[in-house]
Design a protein around this nucleic acid. Structure first.
Lengths: 123, 123
DNA sequence: CTGCGACCTGGAGTGCGCTCCAGGTCAAGG
DNA sequence: CCTTGACCTGGAGCGCACTCCAGGTCGCAG
């Protein structure tokens, strides 16, 4: 499994993110290694927050052949920068969360009675 | 402005993320510095991907007073770990994107004719 | 030969987090 | 005094990315 549910795979095929998925004699999908690799790429883009519409554009460029390499570079490059920003934002906000946690832990330290019974099992 | 739209603020008040927002004589909301600080915290949680239901739980704990500090610590701590995982996942997938970019750039280098006209303006 | 379960299809439904709308109120500027 | 525009309310609508459903078709185990 590629990490996508079967429903998601069907959906992706329907909207055109997956093209030319082979079928066996009884009409069932057979995913090749290439398909799997492509799904890995889709997973990567999806997990980094690329919207489906943009993934669609990317897959059309990919299908269109070598003349689209520049465009693909531009697309991935700008996505890469977005991912970078996203990571920075997360790191920044994580700092706030951790400071808040530190603050709460100080409070908890001065009111230790609050902790009673949380981790002590009694018969 | 807190970074939220006015509609979002109304929505947050409606579902209970904001409580006791003051009103002036004509019924309009007046946000205090405390409100602003709380909104900052909400923004932080939201931007790091906490679902609204959990933010709601957090704000209820906060309203409930000092006996809930332990629970708040647990909530924020587990969120902090999720954020950490999220950052790691992003970094990992960003690596794949960058390798892909490197691969495309190599191709582009060997087929430089493709680049013609992209950045050159002609009268 | 008969179930059974895993797949197939087109299309409807869901959950989340807003965002917009109609209709109304108020305060200040011209 | 009247208009304008920014806010108010309850409630409907939207966009995204799936997820589920009804009804059907295989192919293999018993």
């Amino acid at each position: 499994m590629s990490g996508f549910s079967i429903d998601t795979l069907r959906y992706y095929e329907k909207i055109g993110l997956l093209a030319d998925i082979a079928r066996n004699t009884s009409g069932r999908r057979v995913f090749s290694d290439d398909d799997l690799a492509w799904l890995g790429m889709l997973r990567c883009l999806r997990e980094t927050g690329m919207p489906i519409a943009e993934m669609l554009r990317y897959s059309e460029l990919t299908r269109a052949g070598d003349e689209t390499v520049q465009e693909r570079i531009e697309l991935l490059h700008s996505h890469d920068r977005r991912v970078e920003e996203q990571i920075e934002r997360l790191r920044f906000q994580q700092g706030r969360i951790q400071r808040k946690l530190g603050f709460y832990r100080e409070i908890a330290e001065y009111r230790p009675e609050i902790d009673c019974g949380v981790s002590a099992a009694r018969p």
